[in-house]
Amino acid sequence: MIKIVHYINQFYGGIGGEEFAGYKPEVREGFVGPGLGLNSLIKDQAEIVATVICGDTFFNENMDQAKSEIITMIKKYNPDIFVAGPAFNAGRYGVACGAICQAVKNELKIPVLTAMYPENPGVEMFVKDAYILETTNSAAGMRKALPALGKFLKKLINNETIGRPEEEGYIPRGIRVNYFAEKRGSSRAVDLLVKKLHNEEFTTEFPMPLFDNVEPHNPVENITQAKIAIVTSGGIVPKGNPDHIESSSASKYGKYDITGVDDLTAETYETAHGGYDPTYANQDSDRVIPVDVLRNMVKEGKIGSLHNYFYSTTGNGTAVADAKKWGAEIAKELVADGVNAVILTST
């Protein structure tokens, strides 16, 4: 018999609602709450041997402690598979399910499975760590979520190959799998185009990332007093690239002090970018970030000041998720430094 340990929150564990969200981790033998239905779907081959219950607030506020206590509880049962949730669109519960799945996978090296609504923050944080089955946004979807979990569990129990996300109902993890296609790429592309022209359904082989738009910010009111900062994805760095920013698929950005620098020269600055011909930027990096012009505009009183740091990374092949995270970090620092507007240059 395959042994499964199940994780649920204080609500599904029957402890109580929000007023019990501080409930500390507890383990019980057998199944509890939604585990009852789940167990009945797999009982010919597997059994939920234990259920961990933890309050959502406790887990999220004490994540390291909660994870280590829960791992200790789970280990005792020596399970073959770990399941958490379903969490639907409950944010803290989703994060808890994702985090505990990640910890179990890393420490106990067993398959992990959870389920939640695609917009649950737990998805973005942990989609690479666990199979996350897609559910509706509320517990009303339990009737559908449990059979989906049961079906997927059977695949894990029987060590079956897990197919593509759309076949199996899990949220895409961003993992590409090599396979031998019958037709070469060019004819597959034409097939897709023909389907599109006929208004037939088609599945792209390369979905584009989704970008979220933001409301345009108010215009700068008093530009002659404004502090302007430079940010670039053109990879301009001090000569020698001190932070070793990668020429593509950058894993970081740099922050560089230009106090007293009025002009970027071939001797002092260069580009780390590997996605365009660097000749012109290496000759004169002002061609990518206009430090010379902005310094003069300060002298002429056209703008208030130029922020003494610029931020730079190489924007080719950079993961959108990383770029988004860096953008948020950079924006936070710029605001804290009293910057009023940013000129972002892109190559």
Partner: peptide, 15 residues
């Protein structure tokens, strides 16, 4: 991006 200003060329946008 909200305020977009077209520039010269990929390897030398501002030159």
């Amino acid at each position: 991006a909200n305020r977009i200003l077209p520039t010269v060329a990929i390897p030398h946008p501002l030159g």
